[in-house]
């Protein structure tokens, strides 16, 4: 019943500036994806194009083989819960939470009112409050309620934990997994809070400067990096021939992040006194996309 959402060679320009270059992506059914990228990488633009809320200049976006643009069947299966803002177009967003819930019940064919009410209560939201009067955390909670209660086969959340404190964030991951284990629907979650969420994502999509840098199983991706440290000569010898992503130096000590699995490094290190440690998803992301991202072989 649920089909594949696919983007193929997407290009998006704002005036002369190209914000998405040749982006191709397949969203497989039943997977929780994490979409991570720096501010301005193009995450919201990409998600917006995937759900026919924004136009694109080249390439295609299809759902079940058919383009999503103005496609009623496709849009009935998609939900893109955007970040809410106190400002809407030219003024304050004086719509209330219950207005959004009403609109959602009209537009999402599988809307689950009981679940929405349950979540509203769990978050302690006052449905009569105007959006412009909500705190950032409460606005995030509203987007979470809208996304989860939509029961859409493909549900996309843009920065759902922005503004939530750590307790609320942990609660969100629990709620998300409760829903996922029950329904098995597809989720795409874009977030800046990478390390916490890493365990929840089965696959990770990294968007950097408008291009897809990686789409992989999260654990496999993380396991493909190592951090090697020790004396400079030893480290250089061990990492020779591998892609170096990041270098730290302190006196004669050198620490290097490489695109190579720890097992590979350990074999190369045989005998040498170097420390080989894992690289977290967050660090791997920073190394790949940070200012000093350079690609050289040591």
């Amino acid at each position: 019943m649920e089909q594949t959402l696919q983007a193929s060679h997407l290009v998006k320009r704002y005036g002369k500036k190209e914000v998405l270059h040749d982006v191709s992506l397949t969203i497989e059914p039943g997977v929780i994806y994490g979409l991570i990228g720096r501010n301005g990488a193009g995450k919201t633009t990409l998600l917006s194009i995937l759900t026919a809320q924004n136009t694109h200049d080249a390439g295609t976006v299809t759902y079940g083989g058919q383009p999503v643009w103005e496609n009623e069947k496709a849009l009935a299966d998609l939900c893109f819960s955007r970040e809410l803002s106190g400002q809407i177009l030219f003024g304050q967003n004086t719509y209330k939470v219950k207005d959004y819930l009403l609109a959602a019940s009209m537009y999402y064919p599988r809307w689950d009112k009981a679940y929405a009410d349950q979540l509203v209560q769990r978050f302690g939201l006052d449905v009569k409050k105007k959006i412009c009067k909500l705190s950032k955390g409460m606005m995030s909670m509203v987007t979470i309620v809208l996304a989860l209660a939509s029961r859409a086969p493909i549900t996309i959340l843009d920065e759902p934990v922005a503004g939530l404190d750590v307790v609320a964030r942990e609660d969100f991951y629990k709620i998300l997994l409760d829903d996922y284990t029950e329904t098995g629907r597809t989720f795409v979650i874009s977030t800046h809070i990478i390390e916490e969420a890493a365990n929840v994502f089965e696959k990770v999509i990294i968007l950097n400067n408008g291009q897809i840098a990686a789409v992989e199983n999260t654990e496999d991706f993380v396991a493909s990096f190592s951090f090697v440290s020790g004396r400079e000569e030893d480290v250089d010898a061990v990492t020779a021939g591998h892609e170096v992503l990041h270098t730290e130096r302190m006196g004669r000590q050198k620490g290097v992040a490489v695109r190579a699995a720890r097992a590979v490094m350990e074999r190369a290190a045989a005998g040498r006194d170097v420390d080989i440690s894992p690289v977290s998803l967050q660090k791997a992301f920073v190394y790949l996309t940070g200012e000093e991202a350079h690609h050289e072989t040591a």
């Binding site: 759900t51 809320q53 009623e72 939900c79 955007r82 809407i88 177009l89 009209m106 537009y107």
Partner: peptide
């Protein structure tokens, strides 16, 4: 036009 279109589109409403 401004707000209704915005909310409608964000929830998958059809333009036609």
């Amino acid at each position: 036009a401004g707000i209704s279109v915005h909310i409608s589109l964000t929830m998958g409403g059809l333009r036609r």
